[in-house]
């Protein structure tokens, strides 16, 4: 897989490896990693928040000895710091959920294709059931039944996403199962697990891998939506989505900054992930390669 990605990168037209979305995304990730160091304030620490400076406009000097570059929210938290810390939550939630969902989906899809008959029916009916409900509804149901919390959000996102991987991988694995090398593997009397994980899975995985970045983008958006609806992460640890939601009620009073800046940050993050995901898909998908 690694060599393939490298080869795909090298094959870029004009020898260009980095694109603007890639640079933007890398910057986002660096900022998220460095948040505790570079953020002027720890928005999760009540001792660092000066409540009387709530709803300061951007550029106001704060009591902590730094400027509120992007202003503060209704609780007095520095918006810039909230964004940097929120970024961490958004990224962790979306990447973890997409990765686990991919793992579950891949295993389910490949097993359905390999075993066929009732295993296939059982898994795929579950997938149908899952895909027939809107993703946001599935996530909502999960959150409502499981209760709030970052781990629950991740679980809800996994439940909402695994089916997409399963369906995609199953269709690829089905056509792989009919190839002669799979027959050869059966004739060798290989253990079933070896046939699945050594032969079938590595050859069925490519389209699903290209789906991962795109699904991470979806997960960020979905988490933001859930948080915006108040069903996501706890209010004292805002993600980007809940930061937007926190400021939403002040928008009409002219305090645009509390919602606008986290919103822009969220927009930039989702857009860059989607662009990079699309890039990766185009380079890994053999069908989109020039003949």
């Amino acid at each position: 897989m690694k060599t393939e990605i490298l080869r795909a990168l090298k094959k870029r037209p004009y020898g260009q490896v980095l694109t603007v979305p890639m640079i933007v995304l890398a910057t986002y990730i660096l900022l998220a990693l460095a948040a505790p160091v570079i953020a002027p304030q720890n928005p999760y620490d009540p001792l660092q928040i000066y409540g009387w400076e709530a709803s300061s406009s951007p550029g106001t000097p704060g009591s902590g000895g730094y400027l509120y570059l992007l202003g503060t929210d209704g609780l007095g938290r520095d918006i810039l710091s909230t964004i940097l810390y929120g970024l961490r939550i958004s990224l962790v939630v979306s990447i973890t959920s997409a990765a686990i969902a991919a793992l579950i989906g891949l295993t389910a899809g490949v097993s359905a294709a390999y075993f066929g008959s009732w295993v296939d029916s059982a898994i795929m009916r579950l997938v149908d059931l899952q895909l027939s409900l809107p993703t946001i509804l599935v996530a909502l149901i999960a959150i409502v039944t499981l209760g709030p919390g970052i781990d629950r959000i991740i679980l809800a996102l996994i439940i909402a996403q695994w089916a997409t991987y399963a369906r995609l991988v199953r269709s690829v694995a089905l056509s792989e199962t009919n190839k002669s090398y799979m027959d050869a593997a059966r004739l060798m009397r290989l253990p079933t697990s070896r046939i699945i994980f050594r032969h079938l899975l590595p050859n069925s995985i490519a389209p699903a891998v290209t789906l991962i970045p795109i699904e991470i983008g979806h997960a960020v958006a979905l988490e933001a939506t859930l948080s915006f609806l108040g069903l996501g992460v706890p209010i004292d640890k805002p993600s980007l989505g809940s930061a937007v939601a926190n400021g939403f009620q002040y928008l009409l009073t002219g305090q645009y900054w509390t919602s606008l800046f986290p919103g822009l940050a969220l927009f930039g993050l989702i857009a860059s992930i989607n662009f990079v995901g699309e890039d990766v898909r185009r380079h890994l998908d053999p069908r989109s390669r020039p003949v």
Partner: peptide, 28 residues
């Protein structure tokens, strides 16, 4: 054991020649 018609799909594209042959010795 079988030898199939189309050699292009008869070998696991992600396994090297050595891995394929050793698998046959070990399991087959």
């Amino acid at each position: 054991q079988m030898i199939f018609q189309d050699p292009a799909v008869s070998l696991n594209p992600r396994m090297s020649v050595g891995e394929t042959l050793r698998e046959s010795i070990r399991f087959g």
